[in-house]
Measured scan of single mutants.
Amino acid sequence: NQASVVANQLIPINTALTLVMMRSEVVTPVGIPAEDIPRLVGMQVNRAVPLGTTLMPDMVKGYA
């Protein structure tokens, strides 16, 4: 099963992502693939992302 990117903490709206904010986990539904974590660093979320939430492509500005 493919691992997805999951929020390791509450990520406030418009926050630029850092490695410490994300972890990989096998979840359903599948979100952004864990191998894209390096690409996500520095990108901003367009909404608040609660701890444990799977990051979906539409949550990250410029990802989709």
Rank of each mutant, 00 (worst) to 15 (best):
G42D: 10
M43C: 08
M43G: 09
G52A: 14
A34L: 12
D36Y: 06
M22P: 00
P12V: 11
E35V: 04
L51F: 11
A64H: 14
Q2N: 14
T15N: 05
V6K: 09
L51R: 07
K61S: 13
V6D: 00
T18N: 03
T18R: 08
T18S: 12
M56I: 11
T54V: 05
V27R: 06
P38Y: 05
E25D: 15
A64F: 02
A64Q: 15
I11F: 02
V20C: 07
D58G: 09
I37M: 11
N8R: 14
A16G: 10
M59V: 04
A34F: 05
R47K: 12
T54M: 07
E25L: 03
V6H: 06
E25P: 01
V6E: 03
S24G: 12
L17R: 00
V45S: 11
P12N: 05
Q2W: 06
P50G: 12
A16V: 05
V6N: 03
L51I: 10
K61T: 10
A7E: 00
M43S: 05
T53L: 07
V6P: 01
M59S: 08
M21A: 04
T15K: 07
I32L: 07
I32N: 01
D58N: 06
D58T: 10
V20K: 13
P57L: 04
L10T: 08
R47E: 12
N14F: 06
R39W: 02
D58V: 06
N14S: 08
V27K: 06
V27M: 11
V26L: 14
P29W: 05
L55H: 00
V27Q: 08
R23M: 04
I13Q: 10
V49Y: 01
V41P: 06
L19V: 10
V20F: 09
V41D: 04
T28D: 15
M43R: 12
Q2K: 02
E35Y: 04
M22A: 02
A48R: 10
R47Q: 15
A3G: 11
P38G: 05
D58P: 09
S4P: 01
M21Y: 06
P33M: 10
I32T: 03
L40Y: 05
R39A: 07
I32F: 03
Q2Y: 06
A7W: 00
P33H: 12
E35I: 14
A3Q: 05
T54S: 09
E35H: 09
V6F: 05
T18C: 10
G52H: 14
E25R: 02
M43F: 07
M59W: 12
T28H: 04
R23V: 14
E35P: 12
I37K: 03
L40Q: 01
A34S: 12
N8C: 03
K61P: 12
I32D: 00
R39N: 06
D58E: 09
P29D: 15
T15I: 05
S4I: 02
G31N: 01
M43H: 11
M43E: 07
M59L: 07
V45K: 00
P29A: 12
N8K: 14
D58Y: 04
P33W: 10
V49M: 12
G52R: 07
L51K: 07
G52K: 05
M59G: 06
T15S: 07
Y63T: 07
M21D: 10
P12G: 09
E35R: 02
V26W: 05
E25Y: 03
I32E: 00
L10W: 07
